[in-house]
């Protein structure tokens, strides 16, 4: 597919909201022209290759490798001190560190299962029957268990058929590992259909259906039309700043000048 070069006009503005999978990286729109009002991006790339690295640089005032409550602020502190030892350290960010929040864990695992185990087009619901059907398609060997290879192959096929997830090629191992983490009761390194269903049932409220998407995040679903502004309507205006806090950008300022691509994404 030919890449589109926006040399003539238009650029893409990425808006950071609050959570979930970063899809925006795979958009093949190349912005060439950057509006003068937007600050150059912060050069965090060379210094920070991890959240811990970023946090320690930003908050560890005395440079002792620990971010103390006084240094970070109590509310945020409690949230991040995963092992509860009174300090936020590298250990709290290691692969084994567990998230305290049951709700977040649930939402993430539901999202993962939804991305990989939906068979119909209703992205907002995952009924148990659909999960079971999808698990069967992954389990090509028919032994009731999905191994990493089956998972990878099936995900690949789904991509080719145009089913989501499409551009997450690098994420399958992560997803598989994360799902295993959540469900692998017998620790055999395989996703057994029974384990997936057991996991589903444990988190289901009894109606055999998980409600995903907007319904899951009631704190964010309200306000504005549920479906977003329709084509042909005036784009809701806004004025926001870049992460570095530079001069604000107002959407309506581009009217009459150039089209604006909006890539909404989130990253927590």
């Amino acid at each position: 597919m030919q890449r589109l070069s926006l040399a003539a006009a238009g650029f893409a503005v990425a808006l950071a909201g609050c959570r979930a999978e970063p899809n925006a990286v795979e958009a093949e729109v190349e912005p060439v022209e950057v509006a003068a009002t937007v600050s150059p991006p912060m050069d965090a790339g060379d210094e920070h290759d991890s959240i811990w690295s970023y946090l320690v640089a930003r908050y560890d005032a005395d440079g002792d490798g620990s971010v103390t409550p006084a240094e970070y602020g109590r509310a945020s502190f409690d949230r991040l001190d995963k092992n509860g030892d009174g300090a936020i350290q590298a250990a709290d960010f290691e692969a084994g560190a567990r998230d305290n929040s049951e709700a977040m864990r649930r939402q993430r695992s539901q999202q993962l299962l939804a991305w990989y185990f939906q068979t119909d087009d209703d992205a907002n619901k995952l009924p148990r029957t659909e999960l079971e059907a999808a698990a069967r398609t992954y389990d090509t060997s028919g032994d009731g268990k999905i191994d990493a290879e089956e998972f990878g192959c099936a995900a690949e096929e789904r991509r080719e058929l145009g089913k989501r997830p499409t551009r997450r090629a690098t994420r399958e191992l992560d997803a598989f590992a994360t799902l295993l983490d959540q469900t692998d009761e017998d620790a055999d390194g395989l996703l057994a259909t029974a384990e997936l269903v057991g996991f589903f049932d444990a988190m289901d409220d009894g109606d055999g259906v998980w409600n995903l998407g907007r319904g899951q995040r009631s704190s964010r679903g309200s306000g504005g039309p549920p479906s977003g502004p329709a084509a042909g309507t005036v784009a809701p205006d806004f004025t926001l700043s870049s992460p570095e806090g530079g001069a604000a950008v107002t959407l309506s300022s581009f009217a009459g000048e150039k089209p604006v691509g909006l890539i909404f994404g989130s990253y927590t």
Partner: peptide, 10 residues
């Protein structure tokens, strides 16, 4: 803005 555009999660 996210709400105005019903844009969560992306």
């Amino acid at each position: 803005v996210n709400k105005a555009y019903a844009a969560w999660p992306d």
